[in-house]
Design a protein around this nucleic acid. Structure first.
Lengths: 94, 94
DNA sequence: ACTATATTTAACAATTAGGTTAAATGTTAA
DNA sequence: TTAACATTTAACCTAATTGTTAAATATAGT
């Protein structure tokens, strides 16, 4: 869990692409697979990594499993970056 | 270059720790090494990855090589995340 | 129960990543 | 130039990542 998992998950281009796809609409695993040139098995593992990182949520609907984006964990990254940048230099919320 | 390199560089905990150290002051390679339990060679490779990603800059000063933080490339991540979150939902800059 | 479809899991191969030690490079000072 | 120190690079090892194909699981329809 945490920052480590999130950043690891984001460090793969296919996984980022998946997240971008899900920005527009939730999609079934199969629909997602169709957007890539790798096998379904490969995408499935990417999905499980994203899910593990809580960047996506899944709900089964009959035969299909739908994936939706969850951006809440991205806050942690934003925070870490903001802290690293140390806005504390030019008086923005002291 | 770009987002991929940056995220890859950030996906390792030692490298993130190095960046955090450099937030406070620029440090020589040796000083950085002292903060970790791995060998200097290992840290040196981490430094080269961070440098490749342009997250740090180095300047030789005599025997020593000093490293300093460069946060400018983090903007790209912030942008990517912001875009993914799609603030376009509750009318903030339409 | 059988078949078809959607998705995941297992087993394996190839590549990448991170660690170690030893050698190489660069710099300073005697 | 030699010695000492700081740092990187090379060679090597192991573990993790990513991809593939084949088998397993889950659901729906007949």
């Amino acid at each position: 869990m945490g920052l480590q998992n999130t950043l690891k998950a984001l460090s793969d281009p296919i996984r980022r692409e998946i997240l971008s796809l899900l920005k527009h609409k939730t999609m079934s695993a199969g629909e997602i697979v169709d957007h890539f040139s790798v096998t379904g098995a490969s995408i499935s593992r990417h999905l499980s990594i994203l899910k593990e990182a809580d960047l996506i949520r899944d709900t089964r609907e009959g035969k299909y499993i739908y994936y939706e984006l969850n951006t809440s964990v991205l806050e942690e990254i934003m925070l870490w970056i903001t802290e690293l940048k140390g806005e504390d230099g030019h008086d923005k919320n002291l």
